[in-house]
């Protein structure tokens, strides 16, 4: 069922992770960087961190864009995909993704050959937010029961926070202890947990909505594409529950690791939350594409 959708799952997760990372980069620079921030992180720490995150961001954007092409039946016509900016959210998404990439590239070069300006990070983040916004609008505007809800926005804007938290934790893992950073990550881990719980409860409600309206007998039921095929609901439920538990467990582990301050020990320990969060988000996103499909 998701055979045709895998590239979209990967693309959306990668782009959202990229936006999340840029967001955290901005936050860290705002709060902790020597000059304007609280000064907890010296440029010795900050610069390699910035460089690594920028590298990862670029990798994610590029890979995401490359993978997304696999979704097209005619990849060589992809250049035409921005010709309907006035109406099509997909056109806009592709446009903003390109803008996101260009701004990132500028930032990357600036970082390499000079100093990365705050304005550029702000602009990059802005483009990233627009990518996510148009991405969410694409699905929201189809009117499908599984997509036409606030869940889509929570999901698409929540994933960057979750991935951002994870990536920050990974990046800072093994660094010298800085209480401020850990405290910030504690806050974001808790925020991630809230997002995961909220998303899960909204998904449960969606299932209910999809099931309850299927009992009726009407013309709209027969010809409408908004409801998922009934027989995919159990699979959806399975995927979304799996997604919830993995991401929840992953975020909890990050929280725990921050709280007991085990940054310096157990180098491989961070693999657990990382694997859990990535698996959880893939599962959750797969369920998202599943419930919008009316193919059985």
């Amino acid at each position: 069922m998701l055979r045709k959708e895998w590239s979209l799952i990967v693309y959306s997760l990668m782009l959202q992770a990229a936006v999340g990372i840029v967001f955290f980069l901005l936050v860290f620079r705002l709060i902790f960087a020597g000059e304007s921030g609280a000064g907890q992180m010296t440029s010795q720490t900050m610069n390699p961190l910035t460089s690594r995150t920028m590298g990862l961001t670029g990798l994610l954007i590029l890979a995401g864009m490359a993978v997304s092409v696999f979704h097209l039946g005619n990849p060589f016509r992809a250049y035409r995909s921005v010709t309907n900016l006035s109406k099509s959210w997909l056109s806009r998404e592709i446009f903003f993704t390109s803008a996101f990439f260009v701004l990132w590239a500028a930032g990357f070069l600036m970082e390499k050959y000079g100093n990365l300006s705050f304005l550029l990070i702000w602009l990059t983040l802005g483009a990233g937010v627009l990518v996510i916004l148009s991405m969410a609008r694409i699905y929201y505007s189809t009117g499908k029961t599984g997509w036409h809800s606030a869940t889509t926005f929570l999901d698409f804007f929540g994933t960057p926070v979750i991935f951002g938290t994870l990536v920050s934790a990974v990046m800072l893992y093994g660094q010298r202890r800085t209480d401020g950073v850990e405290n910030l990550l504690i806050i974001f881990s808790i925020l991630s947990l809230f997002i995961v719980i909220a998303r899960f409860s909204m998904q449960l409600k969606l299932v209910e909505k999809c099931l309850s309206s299927q009992e009726e007998y009407s013309m709209d039921q027969l010809v409408g594409a908004s409801l998922p095929a009934r027989d995919i609901i159990p699979l959806y439920r399975k995927m979304m529950i799996r997604g919830f538990f993995c991401t929840f467990a992953g975020c909890s582990l990050i929280l725990l690791m921050m709280m007991i301050r085990i940054f310096d020990s157990g180098h491989l320990l961070i693999v657990f939350p990382a694997v859990l969060v990535v698996a959880g988000e893939i599962s959750s996103r797969s369920s998202f594409y599943l419930i919008g499909s009316d193919e059985s």
Binding site: K4, L72, G73, N74, S81, G143, K144, A225, G292, D294
Partner: peptide, 23 residues
């Protein structure tokens, strides 16, 4: 001649299976 095969039209159409995609 122009269609990319992105299937957005299929997703956006509120009517079920009126379009076909030549995979």
């Amino acid at each position: 001649e122009i269609c990319l095969g992105c299937r957005m039209c299929i997703m956006a159409c509120p009517y079920t299976q009126v379009r076909s995609y030549n995979e």
